[in-house]
C-alpha cells in the first residue's frame, strides 16, 4: 500500500483495529468509546467489529477506569483506555502515578503493566474550560511512565502499535487539533521506534525542537524563515520519555542555535527540561542562549482568546530573531 490521505483520528482507529485483530487480549474501554465511537470518533466501529467484550463503555469514573486497566493487565490483558479529555484524566492521577507507573518497581519486575492510556490533549480547537490542557509535563515527570507525543498520522499509527506491544505503561498523547487534519501517510511503513526523535526539516542556521501539536506550526515557521533567507531545522521529539537526547544534542551542536516550542505553560515543563538539557550538553556549541516559546503560565484560555496563548509562527520567528545573529 502506498501513501494515502489519512487523518490522525483514522490512523489511530486503524491502529486500534489492527492491534485488536492481532491480539485477543487487547481491550479498548473508557467513556463513550463503545457504540458512540468516542467523542472524537476515534474508536468508531470497534464495538461492532470486535464485540462489547473487547470495546466497551465504563461507568463515568476515570480512577476506576485506570484502576480496572491495571487489574486487567495484572491478569494477562492489554488494556488501551481513553481519557476523554486531558483535564478529565486528573481523577486518575493517583492510579497513574502511584500504581501504573510503579507496579514494576514495587514488585521487583514480577508484574509489569502493558497499559496504554490515550489522552486527547492540548488546545486549538475552541474548547471550553477543562478541555484543552497540555498535561504532558505531569506524566513526563513521573518515573516509570513512557510518554509519547505523535505529531503525524503515520506516527500516530506506528507509535500506537508500538505502545500496545510495549511491556510497560505508555501515556499516548493525541493532539486534538490534529485529529481531523488530513495528510499523506503510509501506515504500512514502519516508523522509528519509541525513544527516537526525527528531523522533519533540515536547517543549518537554527533548530526548532518541538512535539505534538506544535510540529506543524514549527514547520510553517521554518517555511516562512526560508523565504526570508534563514534555514531552520525542525526536530520532532515524538517520544518525551524516553527522550532522544543524542539526536537533540547532535542537531543543536550542528546549528548552534535552538528554540524549544510547546503549548504547555513553560514553567517547570518539558520545554524547561529541554532548555536545561541543551545547556548542559551543548554549551560550547551554542551561539546564543536557548529560547523557549511556550504557552503562558496561565490556566488554558477560553476559545475567544486561545490564539494569543498558543505558540504562533510570528512568536517563533521573533524568538529566532533574538538568537544573537549579530555574532553569526
Amino acid at each position: 500500500m502506498s501513501a494515502e490521505k489519512l487523518t490522525m483520528a483514522a490512523a489511530i482507529n486503524t491502529a486500534l483495529r489492527d492491534a485488536m485483530r492481532a491480539d485477543d487480549s487487547v481491550l479498548v474501554f473508557g467513556e463513550d468509546v463503545g457504540p458512540l465511537g468516542g467523542v472524537f470518533r476515534v474508536t468508531e466501529g470497534l464495538t461492532d467489529s470486535f464485540g462489547a467484550a473487547r470495546c466497551f463503555d465504563t461507568p463515568l469514573a476515570e480512577s476506576g477506569i485506570l484502576g480496572m486497566a491495571i487489574g486487567l493487565a495484572m491478569n494477562g490483558m492489554h488494556p488501551v483506555v481513553e481519557m476523554q479529555f486531558d483535564a478529565f484524566a486528573y481523577p486518575a492521577f493517583e492510579q497513574i502515578t502511584s500504581h501504573l507507573a510503579k507496579m514494576r518497581n514495587r514488585t521487583r519486575g514480577a508484574l509489569h503493566l502493558p497499559v496504554v492510556v490515550r489522552v486527547p490533549y492540548a488546545g486549538g480547537i475552541g474548547g471550553v474550560e477543562h478541555h484543552c490542557d497540555s498535561s504532558e509535563s505531569y506524566y513526563a515527570h513521573t518515573p516509570g511512565l513512557t510518554v509519547l507525543a505523535p505529531a503525524t498520522s503515520a506516527d500516530a499509527y506506528g507509535l500506537l502499535r508500538a505502545a500496545i506491544e510495549y511491556p510497560d505503561p505508555v501515556i499516548f498523547l493525541e493532539p486534538k487539533k490534529r485529529y481531523f487534519a488530513s495528510e499523506e501517510a503510509d501506515i504500512r511503513e514502519p516508523v522509528a521506534p519509541i525513544g527516537t526523535a526525527e528531523l522533519r526539516r533540515a536547517g543549518r542556521d537554527a533548530t526548532l525542537i518541538t512535539y505534538g501539536p506544535s510540529v506543524p506550526v514549527a514547520l510553517a515557521a521554518a517555511e516562512q524563515a526560508a523565504a526570508e533567507g534563514r534555514e531552520l531545522g525542525v526536530l520532532d521529539l515524538r517520544s518525551l520519555v524516553p527522550l532522544d537526547e543524542q539526536t537533540i544534542a547532535e542537531a543543536v551542536r550542528a546549528s548552534g542555535r535552538a528554540v524549544v516550542i510547546a503549548e504547555t505553560p513553560g514553567f517547570a515543563s518539558v520545554a524547561a527540561e529541554l532548555a536545561a538539557l541543551i545547556g548542559e550538553r551543548c554549551f560550547h556549541h551554542l551561539e546564543a542562549p536557548v529560547r523557549r516559546v511556550t504557552g503562558f503560565d496561565i490556566p488554558y484560555p477560553p476559545p475567544k482568546l486561545e490564539r494569543h496563548h498558543l505558540p504562533s509562527i510570528d512568536r517563533i520567528l521573533d524568538a529566532v530573531d533574538e538568537l544573537q545573529w549579530e555574532h553569526a
Partner: peptide, 17 residues
Amino acid sequence: ATQLPHAVGVGHAARLR
C-alpha cells in the same frame, strides 16, 4: 482503596476468559 479497582480488573480478566 487504590487496590480495589485493580481487584475488579483482575476479576474481569478472568471472567472474560
